[in-house]
Design a binder for these strands. Sequence first.
DNA 1: GTGAAAGCGCTAACAT
DNA 2: ATGTTAGCGCTTTCAC
Lengths: 347, 347
Amino acid sequence: MTRDPQDPPRSLTLRDVSEASGVSEMTVSRVLRGRGEVAAQTRARVVEAARRLGYVPNRIAGGLASKRVNLVAVVVPSLGNLVFPDVLTAVGAGLEAAGLHPVVGVTGYDPAREERVLYEMLAWRPSGVILAGLEHSEAARAMLRAAGVPVVEIMDVDGEAVDSVVGISHRGAGRRMAEAILAADYRRIAFLGTTMPHDHRARKRMEGFEAALAEAGVRLAEREFYSGGSSLAKGREMTRAVLARRPDLDFLYYSNDVIGAGGLLDVLGRGLDVPGRLGLAGFNGLELIEGLPRRLASMDACRHAIGHEAAAIVAGGLAGRRVELAPVLDPGDTIRRAAGAQAASAS
Amino acid sequence: MTRDPQDPPRSLTLRDVSEASGVSEMTVSRVLRGRGEVAAQTRARVVEAARRLGYVPNRIAGGLASKRVNLVAVVVPSLGNLVFPDVLTAVGAGLEAAGLHPVVGVTGYDPAREERVLYEMLAWRPSGVILAGLEHSEAARAMLRAAGVPVVEIMDVDGEAVDSVVGISHRGAGRRMAEAILAADYRRIAFLGTTMPHDHRARKRMEGFEAALAEAGVRLAEREFYSGGSSLAKGREMTRAVLARRPDLDFLYYSNDVIGAGGLLDVLGRGLDVPGRLGLAGFNGLELIEGLPRRLASMDACRHAIGHEAAAIVAGGLAGRRVELAPVLDPGDTIRRAAGAQAASAS
DNA sequence: GTGAAAGCGCTAACAT
DNA sequence: ATGTTAGCGCTTTCAC
């Protein structure tokens, strides 16, 4: 049952195709890569031989010889977070036209792990790197600078980039949400989010949120943090906990739509008047929010556009770009409409 | 702003480290790979020089020379499907101990695309292949057989494998659900699922489901299909459509938990008695079902165990294994409890 | 414990 | 339009 390592399943080489077709290795190579002018008849013989043998080119050898590789490293914190699969899908679509392939690495929000993942990926000499966030270890930044290929940091623009950056301002997003909430006359406001020390984007949203409240003379009434992945159940639990401590709260701002949805289901189940007595908002603009009993207020993280732009930068071999996208606030059905909302949100 | 392709950002080589440390390339290589006996002092000099220079080994060259590569191709239909990120996470964890790294490919449930993705990945001569499903083009199967490395087809065991297989029987899963539903005395039953012609597992669940109903003399009263991704909103919409056509239905079996959850929210919102008047069930055992107003009946797809087992087979270099896992049916709160349920489900 | 030589399978750069 | 030559940066093998 165990494969004998001595058993040499030597895979086919260009030479095999060359011999089978009676065409030189070099010309076979040209045909298979679609480079250079090759007589139609010669080409046909080569293609036929390669197909018949089941030849699969060895990109390891090809990459070594040409110093070019059609791989792009894409590094994200997690795949459980809904947002990242979406970004990856957009990146993949964007790279495809350029004949590039994404290679995905996952860091688990751990900087040390990110460093290792980057090291592994750079060892394959990819044509570009796309990675989430602006916060990396010094060693990681050094590796990225030394890589000599386009590096695009995505999701977040609040910080200093190694090379290019594509994202939104999470501080600004938190701020905008605070303004909308204040404009709707909510005043006893809580933030519910993750304790993960390395979810910098959630942290920045909270910072922007608190700053905007402070400017209006409002203090955050409560905070509730959790660790681990997001789930509806976690959202329910946190919501119950925070409302038990402070039953007079009138707004709950969640760090993402999943826990926000859980909270919404929970308060609706208890018959609370939403958004009259209690308002809620999440973040990300996930599809999820559309099927809930009330449409949860949220803010689009622009994940599709981010993936698309990042792919374009890598595919174009560009350097030093900065693309800041403007997320749209969707008030849904969980922020009450108040007179003067527009005016106040422009403050 | 555009990188000059003529600009040679020649990355560091073993030779650079060799010169910087005054140790031969060969010994530097040994140190960096942790192979062979090297004097502690020599090792220290090498490590220091490599670190100082920021040397990242070139695995393209290494792979070519050694014919061994620490990459495992993992091919899944989609990342939007919640299930696959979970499987990938388990695969990654399982491979890690063996020093192997997953490289993810996405097919979009398209066999032609799967073939291209496999071709691309096999061109990198990975140490193993893990791919979802048993249905592949003949060319894809030929490539896999010729690869000369462990190939593990995952998720589904109903069919013929190229090499190893790890999964559950989806036909059996559909059958078991049908038995539980019948035992609970539901009789006017509908199936709601995807039209995607290539979601073979959903198809097999429906087949097993119908077969078990037929054996009990019950015909599927309705079916409703949709295309595109799953969402709560889609689940609501389908549920409304099917109940509009057949208001007397007493059970809805969904092909996954996401549309099932949408359906559940919809019928609860309309005040229907669940599970008395109407029962519901989904599939996958997603975390999602735990935060709903009622716990949706579901069946665990064993995605974590599948990822784990598949990784073990690749890491162990094993061939021809067959691992059939037993999914557990969780009746949740959406299948009514009926006398004789146990007896009937054993039929 | 360390080094020298050969070559992995391809492609760049020149021939022809 | 096609062939020849010389590596790409590493590891294998064997010598010391």
